[in-house]
Amino acid sequence: MYYIHTISSITNQDSFRNEDVYASLREFDKEIDVVAPDYKEFIPRNSLRRLSPILRMGLTCAMECKNFLDKNFDAIVVGTALGCLKDTEKFLNTFITSTSDFLSPTAFIQSTHNTIGGQISLGLNNHAYNMTHTQNSLSFEVSMIDAFLCIKDGKKNVLVGAAEEKIDFLEKVQPSLIPNGYPLASGASFFAISGEKSKNKIGIQAVATNFNSINLENEIAQFLAKENCEMVDLILTSGDVVKNTTSKIESINYLKITGLHYSSSAFATHIAHDFLKNNDAETALIVNNLCKGKLGLILVKKG
């Protein structure tokens, strides 16, 4: 088990500093992108000005996890499928339209995917292992796999999370760059995990990825059998209704709640954690098959 010690999420839901995001879930709010905290509390004003939404979200969630844990992280692992889109778009606009030989480099240097991890290392003055995984809809799942490896390698406290930002242009290029079907959104969720038991004993038992997913139901059954899990109390899915007898309560389509971005399963993990924390339940399964043929499974457990 990889125990979750703190979680911080900024999403379309009212999730930041919310002790029970499961209980307060509501319909996706089309009028807003995310319910953002006052970033000035977390980020110095002079740097805040330069930071795009994804950097603000990622850095704030990381700082919030650090504040609660009160220990330095021994590794920082970030997942992001599309990364810093706002700065990418900005720099594209700059160099395509500019006739000047002198361009501002800020958008360029903040456009690389690992700017989120880099800003976290700077913000926390952290010299540890710092990794960024960009595997489309499974970016969060592969980041989790790396975080677990870090703990196996002997690192104690690991910060792992994912962040995505929505830009309006994405709507123009659906479905080639991102699938159709749900409102596009931004979001970030970060977790401080370790091998040591957390207060509420909730953790992640296993994460599995499948890049050649053919039969969803069989693959879920195989995964649960391997993890000695006969019954799960809650299933959170990225769309397909998982028809089976393994869930005591109906499954929740988390994309309807979080909106669509490639790392929505990170917030689903937050929902699962709070569900287990505040209810008489022991297991939750996240089924992420947002992209055809790609399947991510995350088993969250109490105990």
């Binding site: 990364g83 995984h133 960009t134 760059l177 890049f211």
Partner: peptide, 26 residues
Amino acid sequence: HSSGVSSEQIAEELGITDFINTISTA
């Protein structure tokens, strides 16, 4: 566009499906 897609395409060319990952740290 996405970096993950480029890895999936390389994996497809090689016939590899067990695990695919992309790292983007500049």
